[in-house]
Design a protein around this nucleic acid. Sequence first.
DNA 1: ATGGCTTATCAAATAAGA
Length: 262
Amino acid sequence: MRIATWNVNSIRARVDRVLAFLERQQVDVLAMQETKCRDDQFPSARFEEAGYQVAHSGFNQWNGVALLSRVGLEDVQVGFDGMPHWGEPAAAEARAISGVCDGVRLWSLYVPNGRTLEDPHLGYKLRWLAALRDTAAGWLAAAPESQVGLLGDWNIAPRDEDVWDMAAFAGKTHVSPAEREAFHALVDAGFTDVVRPHAPGPGVYTYWDYTQLSFPKRRGMRIDFALASPALVTRVQHAVIDREERKGKGASDHAPVLFDIA
DNA sequence: ATGGCTTATCAAATAAGA
């Protein structure tokens, strides 16, 4: 089974490209982030025609997460227990959706950005990650053999080599100790990055800013990850970051991240 | 060096991304 995660940065602007990607890479399950639309605007029919079941959560033009599966999509859940709220009035955002695909519970996660180190959004980001850790740790405590994948845009560069130049990120989010600790708390809870061993750095990224010719200059960030529970890790055979999808007209600023399980 | 692209939105500036 081939599983992928991709921040598509608007599904309506990218649907043809996503369909071509699914065909080219023969993807069985795709977790998408930043669909940037409401449920009624999501192009479900296009994916159903291609043989995929669809689950989407989107409330407005911000955020939005989805799952596509051609190997079954059962017990869909929107949000996770204890997921923090944001905004005025405070409400749950469309940043988490999951379903069971051929026995594996896969999550599509869009971790809050954080914006700046002084912004309240950073506290929201850290609370969101802490709540995810607590809830996900509970799943493994209750069922240690459960197969769970936490896939998505984490908006964190866990290592210095995960950004093109640490000096350029001095005083910025995504590389702060607090954010990195929040990421490692998930790892410590039993969720392993299944892609890095197959796509080691330095210089290996999943995101490149649209501005300043970042992509051709190879100035990127590794911020999209697929983390797997212990029972799922043992099934992983291969993984790759599809850099080709960042090329050309109409590309998302993120590249898809794929892995195969036996 | 200033957010220098890209997307969405009550459609022209603004918010958000990271």
